[in-house]
């Protein structure tokens, strides 16, 4: 297994080796394939809030098409990492490079969240953040319409291109609702959906923005075993369409079955990085979870929902 440090040493090879061209078709078999085709790389991220250090020099690489799971005890900095990647927080140090297409690198740090989303990084939230009074369809439409360009005048005049774009947005949104199994909820208010369905709706909304990289923050938290199974299938299906998935999850069963690679955070540091089985055996990881277990956090395999915190 490779520790965070050695991983960092080989970071540079990435973009240069990548061949510009068509998107990778499928990824499950691509694991361990061309290591140069990265989708995102974070280098030495440090994030501090006053005295609290939530990220301390974290580096992370994800290959295109890979399902990468980030695990760690409560308060380890997982959500903070997501927030740095998506522009919600601005880390004091580090950089984040994103490759929407192979060979096409962009720096994410310093961009506003909506710009990052438009580049192809979408996310869900640990504490579900839907638009509660909008219908399920409209929630997803917000995503599918994100890159549409027509202005208020075209809307008011009902110009054909605006109408076409609107229809297109609705169609894609409906398709996505279908994909996540919410077609029967199309016109229902988001707030009236049961919890598990809200989680899936959030995923559909994120997919609406047509991401290359999808960040899921504890998508299985608070769901029942059946829903968990459905979710695993859904994530696999999403990955199969060529979307790289970065996943925070406390449920070790889910992590083991889904992830191709696992990164472990503890106290804002990356303490392990490797295949699920490697990570599970890593003494540092066991130590971290045992330490956390004596506190409140769930250990690996204890699929606790974790405590929910607001995104600041």
């Amino acid at each position: 297994m490779s520790r965070a440090g050695s991983h960092r040493a080989s970071a540079r090879r990435g973009g240069a080796a990548a061949v510009p061209g068509a998107r990778q078709p499928s990824m499950m078999e691509n694991v361990g394939g061309d290591p140069g085709d990265l989708v995102v790389e974070a280098r030495d991220l440090s994030l501090r809030f006053g005295g609290v250090t939530s990220l301390d020099g974290v580096s992370l690489r994800q290959r295109r098409g890979e399902i990468l799971a980030v695990i760690g005890p409560n308060g380890a900095g997982k959500t903070s990492l997501f927030n740095c990647l998506t522009g919600a927080y601005r880390p004091q140090e580090g950089s984040v490079t994103f490759w929407p297409q192979p060979g096409q690198s962009t720096e994410l740090l310093g961009r506003r969240p909506h710009a990052i989303t438009r580049l192809g990084v979408a996310r869900t939230f640990q504490n579900i953040r839907l638009f509660p009074a909008l219908s399920a369809l409209e929630n997803v439409q917000i995503g599918t319409e994100v890159r549409q360009k027509y202005g208020p005048l075209s809307v008011v005049l009902g110009l054909p291109h605006a109408r076409r774009a609107e229809r297109d947005g609705v169609r894609r949104a409906a398709d996505l609702l279908d994909l996540v199994g919410l077609a029967h909820r199309t016109h229902e208010q988001a707030a009236s959906l049961p919890y598990g369905e809200q989680r899936r709706l959030e995923i559909a909304r994120a997919l609406g923005t047509d991401p290359r990289l999808l960040l899921l923050d504890e998508p299985a938290a608070g769901t029942n075993p059946v829903e968990k199974r459905d979710l695993a299938a859904l994530v696999t299906r999403i990955a199969a369409t060529g979307v790289s998935v970065l996943l925070i999850e406390h449920d070790m069963g889910l992590v083991m079955s889904l992830a191709t690679t696992v990164a472990v955070l503890n106290f804002g540091r990356m303490i392990a990085y490797g295949s699920p089985s490697e990570v599970q055996r890593d003494p540092a990881v066991i130590e971290a979870y045992l330490g956390a277990d004596s506190g409140t956090g769930p250990g690996p395999g204890a699929g606790g929902a974790g405590n929910r915190r607001e995104l600041g």
């Binding site: 909506h114 438009r118 917000i142 994120a206």
Partner: peptide, 10 residues
């Protein structure tokens, strides 16, 4: 309804 989520959705 949720400005942060709106930003994050692009």
């Amino acid at each position: 309804e949720d400005e942060i989520a709106a930003e994050a959705t692009g």
